[in-house]
Simulated scan of single mutants.
Amino acid sequence: MSSTAPLPDPGAAGPTVSEVVAEVARRLQLKRAEISHAMSELLARDVTGLDDDPQLVAMLHASVEGNVSTIFHILTNDIPLEHLQPTTAAVKYAAGRLSPAVRRGSRQLDAGMPQIRLM
């Protein structure tokens, strides 16, 4: 008598990858608030200067919450990526972070232009 489990029947239908992913997403959805909070706190702590602006931190939290919810919705419902639109909170957060970064980058580029012209 063999102690190994029998091999599955290749003709038997098991769950598809999409079905497994959907089930994992449903289970993670139960911890959405906890996951979103942890991700927001990590980003707020690790992104230099972010915690100086309470409005930006609030937008970050809303953006992360929206993105996490969207990801779980996508995975649960097998939605193609080309059908997605960014959340308003994500767009506002990105615009808020982008403006100072663009100004900083522009200043750095302007400062480096004399050296570039000499090359």
Rank of each mutant, 00 (worst) to 15 (best):
S2C: 04
S3R: 11
S3W: 09
S3G: 12
T4R: 11
T4C: 07
A5P: 08
P6N: 12
P6M: 06
P8Q: 08
P10Y: 03
P10H: 02
P10F: 01
G11W: 03
G11K: 14
A13R: 15
A13Q: 14
A13T: 15
P15G: 07
E19N: 03
V21S: 04
V21G: 05
A22G: 11
E23K: 11
A25H: 02
R26H: 08
R27F: 06
L28H: 08
L30V: 13
L30A: 15
K31Q: 15
R32E: 13
R32G: 08
A33Q: 12
A33D: 15
A33C: 07
A33L: 09
E34W: 04
I35A: 06
I35F: 04
S36T: 03
A38S: 13
A38K: 10
S40V: 05
E41T: 12
E41R: 09
E41F: 00
E41D: 14
R45L: 09
D46M: 07
D46E: 14
D46A: 07
V47W: 09
T48G: 10
L50T: 04
D51Q: 14
D51R: 15
D51H: 10
D51I: 09
D52Q: 13
D53E: 06
D53R: 00
P54Y: 01
P54F: 01
P54A: 05
P54L: 02
Q55A: 14
Q55C: 02
V57R: 00
M59C: 06
L60V: 05
H61L: 06
H61Q: 15
A62W: 00
S63H: 03
V64E: 00
E65I: 04
G66H: 01
G66I: 03
G66P: 01
N67W: 01
N67P: 01
N67F: 04
V68S: 00
T70S: 13
F72N: 04
H73G: 10
H73P: 01
H73A: 11
H73W: 05
I74R: 07
T76F: 00
T76P: 00
T76C: 02
N77E: 06
N77C: 05
D78E: 10
I79H: 04
P80G: 09
L81T: 13
E82Q: 13
H83I: 00
L84R: 07
Q85Y: 08
P86V: 04
T87S: 13
T87H: 08
T88A: 12
A89P: 04
A89M: 01
A90Y: 10
V91L: 11
V91Y: 03
K92A: 12
Y93R: 03
A94D: 08
A95N: 11
G96W: 02
R97H: 05
R97T: 13
L98K: 08
P100F: 03
P100S: 00
P100W: 05
V102K: 10
R103V: 11
G105N: 10
R107M: 13
L109A: 15
A111S: 10
M113E: 11
I116P: 00
I116T: 10
I116S: 07
R117S: 08
L118Q: 15
L118N: 12
L118V: 12
